[in-house]
Amino acid sequence: MNSVNDYQDQLVQTFIDKYKHTYVDIDRYDAVHLKQHLHFFQEIKPVLNDRERIIFDAIIHMQVSLQIHDRVEFDFLQSNHTHHMVGSIQMNALIGDYHSSWFYKLLSGSGELSALEHFLETVKQINRTKVELLHTEDLSVIDILDKVEEIYIGLYDAYALYYQLTDYNHLRNQIIYHFVYSHKPFWIEKMIQRNGQVKDKWLERKSQFEEDSINRQ
């Protein structure tokens, strides 16, 4: 078990060593989530050739970017910002841009333009969904949870689709459970604040995921 964990830690370290900007502190990265993303994307397609490795790195950059930009929204919501904290939130905005530029640079630099086109569609859709969640008042509770799931699973679906992987559903449920139901992520917290019924439905789905997981074992 430890050796798997060590290997995953090493993947995180390798990614950070290779791509982290000199001026950016390592603790700005959510190492736990990064480790999970690296793990799940690798689970989807464990063996990669050199070209596929570039696509893998690019997709991790975009996932980091999308996630860190969520923190800009939610950290600013907290009151009593200190001068230092504001600087920290601002840096998160820039780190997100920096990693999305890596996504573009890696794919265009290696001539993977069809992959670029494929994933851009998903990036657009995820951002549409985020804006919709922030501004659409009359979404049903089910719609809200579907859309939150879409934010977290969007790039995974796109990745599996890009390689036309058909046997992905079980892993897909694990990923959704991990990012949306194993704890309350930003978006769930935010949606619960707006509509208390989201919490009941969220708990219901969480139980359903857990039950399905037990029945499968």
Binding site: S65, D70, V72, E73, A93, S100, K130, V131, L134, H135
Partner: peptide, 11 residues
């Protein structure tokens, strides 16, 4: 809000 600005920019 900041989120709307960030996500619009990304889009």
């Amino acid at each position: 809000d900041n989120g709307t600005a960030m996500f619009t920019g990304d889009f």
